[in-house]
């Protein structure tokens, strides 16, 4: 499903002294099946933007097209279920949405709401329980008896079990241990490779460099860049101006390039970095 934003603005608490313009004339178009990273500082409007993909927030101005559905300021809450089936959101700290008696029931909750029978939903739930790396034994436990990290995985499984065309994640790895973060990222890229669109809000530039096809950069409610990681991380001065970090591979290459090494492009993955260093060493001999 292609997603297009046309001059979208969003204001919290409009017409009150507390009004905050959190999206300001945002326009972009996302390709189907891409891995999209959404980055920007805290308060830049990332979470606000994300909630528009699912029509949980409707634009104050402008128009959004998701697949064949149009969302305008006039759109009401009725009849949005098909959209929410196709587009799913994992909120920040999603463990706070758990409520069922058992882990497996909680994971099956979404799929069942979207029309699967209880048996089918439970099958899906077991499948995703395994995919997020939880042992079968926890299936019948109360989600509230699990550790924070395990609860996070249950919550993510509960959303991914709906198997949406577009999966949006708001800092899903925040607060997980490094190996857990890696596993989760792997899970999301695998999902994208199966032909789904994944939109990830993150502060981790290494993940952006390694996995993203497209990067949206937000600042104070405005979309200030929409580019490939290759081009984004090439412009170091621009990054510094906007106080954005560079990926570790880029920094590493930068250090080396002062010492006789030459990089014709920013290495985005460890593999690329190794290849380019190799090429440099061969040139020297």
């Amino acid at each position: 499903m292609a997603i297009e934003f046309k001059h979208v603005s969003y204001v919290y608490a409009p017409n009150t002294p507390l009004a905050v313009k959190s999206l300001d004339d945002v326009s972009f178009k996302l390709e189907e099946g891409h891995f999209i990273a959404l980055i920007g500082h805290t308060g830049s409007g990332k979470s606000t933007l994300m909630q528009h993909f699912d029509a949980l927030l409707k634009p104050t101005q402008g128009e959004i097209t998701i697949g064949d559905l149009k969302i305008t300021p006039e759109t009401t809450n009725k009849g949005l279920k098909p959209l929410r089936h196709k587009v799913s959101l994992v909120f920040q700290f999603p463990e706070s949405q758990l409520f069922e008696e058992t882990v497996i029931k909680d994971i099956a909750f979404g799929p069942q709401n979207f029309g699967l029978s209880p048996q089918e939903a439970e099958q899906k739930a077991y499948k995703w329980l395994e995919k997020v790396g939880l042992p079968k034994e926890v299936a019948k436990q109360s989600p509230f008896d699990l550790s924070g990290g395990q609860m996070r995985r249950v919550a993510i499984a509960g959303v991914m079990a709906c198997e949406p065309d577009v999966l949006c994640l708001d800092e899903p790895a925040a607060g997980l241990d490094p190996s857990g973060q890696k596993q989760m990222l792997q899970l999301f890229t695998d999902y994208q490779k199966q032909g789904h669109t994944v939109i990830l809000i993150t502060h981790n530039m290494d993940d952006v460099a390694q996995y993203a096809d497209d990067v949206l950069v937000m600042e104070k409610g405005k979309l200030i860049k929409h580019e490939t990681p290759r081009l984004l991380f090439k412009d170091r001065r621009w990054l510094r101006q906007h106080h954005l970090d560079e990926p570790t591979t880029g920094l590493f290459a930068q250090r080396l390039s002062g010492n006789g090494f030459q990089f014709d492009r920013v290495p985005l993955t460890l593999n690329e970095l190794v290849m380019q260093i190799k090429a440099n060493l061969e040139d020297h001999q």
Partner: peptide
């Protein structure tokens, strides 16, 4: 509420019983 809406809960559709039921996933968390 938004997180459960994203999981397909409808807070303002269906009969009274359904609507009341929809609040369980909100109230427990």
């Amino acid at each position: 509420m938004n997180a459960q809406r994203a999981r397909g809960v409808d807070f303002n559709e269906g009969g009274l019983l359904n609507r009341a039921k929809a609040f369980i996933p909100l109230l427990i968390p």
